[in-house]
Structure formats: structure tokens, C-alpha cells
Design a protein around this nucleic acid. Sequence first.
DNA 1: ATTATCTATAGATCTATAGATAATGC
DNA 2: ATTATCTATAGATCTATAGATAATGC
Lengths: 190, 190
Amino acid sequence: MLDAAAALFCTVGFTSTSTRAIADAAGVRQASIYHHFAGKDAILLELLLGTVRPSLDLADALVAGAEPAAARLWALAHADVGLLSAGPVNLGVLYVLPEVAGEQFAEFHALRSRLRARYSELASAASDDADDRGELVLGLVESVILRRRDTPDLDVAAVQDAVADGVLRLVGCTPTEVAAARTLPVSLGV
Amino acid sequence: MLDAAAALFCTVGFTSTSTRAIADAAGVRQASIYHHFAGKDAILLELLLGTVRPSLDLADALVAGAEPAAARLWALAHADVGLLSAGPVNLGVLYVLPEVAGEQFAEFHALRSRLRARYSELASAASDDADDRGELVLGLVESVILRRRDTPDLDVAAVQDAVADGVLRLVGCTPTEVAAARTLPVSLGV
DNA sequence: ATTATCTATAGATCTATAGATAATGC
DNA sequence: ATTATCTATAGATCTATAGATAATGC
């Protein structure tokens, strides 16, 4: 049911997807949706939480790590790009839906805020500059959402490397520092 | 009518906005919409084209410019962040709507493809590296869409500078080169 | 004459609930 | 006994068209 909804929300759109369409794709009757979810909003919330929670768990672990900050930031960006690029559908597009601005999705926004804070912490630790570049860095990572939309068949591994390297350049690392961070194994990374 | 639709599409959502809601906001009757537009899709297309055309015009002009590539890239990123941040509503969110993937919006996608190509040209010219970093650069620029969504009251001028600087770091410019590119006036820039 | 707007409406949805029936777990 | 599913439907939309009326341009 969640899988069916995810596929429809990401291709047809959230509001364009009727509860009947979800039910048909999931092989149940329309009314059965309401036994499991309060409504379409609840389905969307569950999908959103499912995408941000793994990122936040990893970010929490990496922030507490002992490796050089640049290496941890590289690992986080690399993993998040992987999460956003993986899966049969581009769930990231759901972040941007105007409908998601509503109060019903406060829990999702709270988690995403925490993820943003983790990026800021790592970016500051890895940067020589005083500016907070966490926003820029998260922006570059999440730009794979639009990128995947434009080019559905991305070379995921290549994009992961390119974005993670770009993140380090963005916070001010020199090419030498970037190369060092990539080769350094981060125990908790992916 | 377009303004009313823009505001509703960006806040309520595209499919959630009925032709009646647009008409009410514009102060006309629901049926009158159909005298000016074939339907809601046509309104959305017009809005999308209106956001990408100014960017593309400037990009075309800058690609043909004679200033150092880094300065031209900085100016383009700066201006595009301004365009995406300006205006009463965050029109950029419309780019990501699943509904926009359809064939009806081919003209928009064609223009956006050309803009992407311009970014690639400038990024290659400004970079010492062989990789095409145009995608990363455009991604960083467009990340202001999500950023504006999370923080509606951005300091536009500060974000413009921060993103444009970030773009140059992304293509491999040193801090000295970045500083040089910012101070150099680009005749066609904004 | 042309363009813009209006009223009224056909026809097609869509959400969410009520109430019945089947399946499952203790 | 509880959980999951079903059928049927009320009530509320929503889009797009037909046809009438007003405003505008030559």
C-alpha cells in the first residue's frame, strides 16, 4: 500500500492520486485504505518520515564520530545522495510539494530541521571559514532530487562521489584535503 | 489571473487548486478561465516559461561575453538566485511537481535543458578540472528553491553572494580567484 | 464584428463513512 | 474477540461546454 502510494505520488502527483488509484495498485478496495490510514495525508507523512529517518540516524552517528570532520561530512553526503538516488521512485520530490507545508507534516519538518543542524555542525567543523555553510551543503546534496528527475538513469556511484567531493570543495577544502577525506574509511559510513 | 494562479499553485498545490479558486482570486467567474487558457495545464506552462526565459536570456548573453569565465559564472549564479528568490511566491517549487513531467510541458523542459547546457559551458570554462560540473553548479543554484521553502524570509542579497561564491568553489576556484571574480564587474550581469 | 464575460449544467470524479462479512489470534 | 476487508452510498466537489449577454474596436 505504501509502495503503491509512493509510486503514484511521485509520478502522477499527490493530489492527482485518488485513494481509489492507490487501492487499485495495491490490490484492495478503496475503502480498505481507511482501515490503515486516517487518509492520504497520513500515507504521505509515513513516506516522508521513512526517507528522512535513516539520514538522520546516520548523521547523528557521524556527528559523534572521532574521524576528521571532512571525512565524516564526505561520508554523510555520500550516503544521503545514495538514499535519495536509491529506491524505485524519486521520493525526494515529495519534500517540495506545496501540500507538505501544512501543519500535519510538522513531525517531518522537525526531523529535517535536525538533519540540517547536523550538516551545519559537520560543515563548520570541516571548514576553515566562519560562515555557516550547512545550508549550502545540504542544498547541494538534495539537488540530486531535481537531478534525478531530469535524468532518471543516473550513475548513482559517480554522482555520490561527485557530490560528496563538491561538498568538501564547498566548505573550503583544497583538492589535497578532498582526496585525503575520500580515502579515509569512516567506520559508520556506507 | 496568472498571479492568482501562481500564488495558489505554490501554496495550496497545483491539483488542489481548482479553476474556481483561481477565478475567485482573480475576481472573475470560473468559466471565464477557459476563454484565456485551454485549461489549468496551460496556465502552469505559462508560469514555468516565465521563470526560465529570463534566466536563459541572461545565460545566453553571458556565454557570449568576453570577461573571465569565473566572473561570468558568478554573475549568472548571482542573478539566477535573485530570480528564484524574488517575486511574491516561490515559483521554483513548480519545477519539481510530478505533474510537470508530462509531455504538455516539453517546451519548458527544452528551455531548461538549454539553461543547463549554458551552465555546463561556463563551468567548464571556469574550471581547471576535466569533469563537467555544470549539473552540480545548477543544482546548487536551484537549491535556493528548497531553502526558500524552509526559510521564507531569506536575506536574498546574502544568499546570492553565498551561493555564487559557493559555485566558484565548486568548480575549483581558490579563495583568491573567488574574490577576484566577485569584484570584477560583469557588464551584462545584474 | 470580435472579444470577454456571465449563468447554468452535464458528467465525472473523489473522500469518508456505515454496516456487513470474512479472516485471524488467543 | 479483534482485525481486515468488502459493498454501497451520501455529499461534495471539479472540469469543461453550451448558449446568452455585455463590452470593445474598427
